[in-house]
Amino acid sequence: MSKSSRSLAVVLALLAVIAGLVSGCSPRPSADTLEGPAKEVSSAVRAASLAVDLRMTDSTTASAASTAADDMLGEVEAATDKIHGFDAPTQEERTLRNDVLASFSAISRALLHARDVLTASSGEPAASSDGQARLATVQAELRTATDQLDSLMTKAGIQ
């Protein structure tokens, strides 16, 4: 057993070394390195869209839907932070990074609006024409931002 605890220590040390290597050199923007954050954001914005849809049909509560929008906002912030850390020495890489960041911030804005509208929708019946109109507006904004990100991902070669 002491042998296995020793090998555990070795594994942990290796882990620490690998973590050090990974964090030591920051990645550069490319289809490969952007894939993770882009997919996270794409999933987040779609989840928020679904929450707004559900709220429009009165299937979900204002609390649950606004919590979802808030959570998704957190996801996008985390992905944005990741990309901010990227090194972009060439002009081409800088453009790609800035395009992605711009798309993320558009999504962030849309999510922020969605969250506010969802939170405010708690008092009134969701079927009220006012509420429906506001929800439809943020839904459209979310969709536009999603389409932008999708086309950017296709352009950058991210499936």
């Binding site: 996270e40 794409s42 989840a47 679904l50 299937s59 649950a64 919590t67 996801e75």
Partner: peptide
């Protein structure tokens, strides 16, 4: 199918809300 991969509890409950409402 919607391209959503779960990372939060608020996403876990979405399908049930869609199916059965509030």
């Amino acid at each position: 199918p919607a391209g959503i991969s779960v990372t939060t509890l608020s996403e876990v409950v979405l399908p049930v809300a869609q199916a059965g409402g509030q």
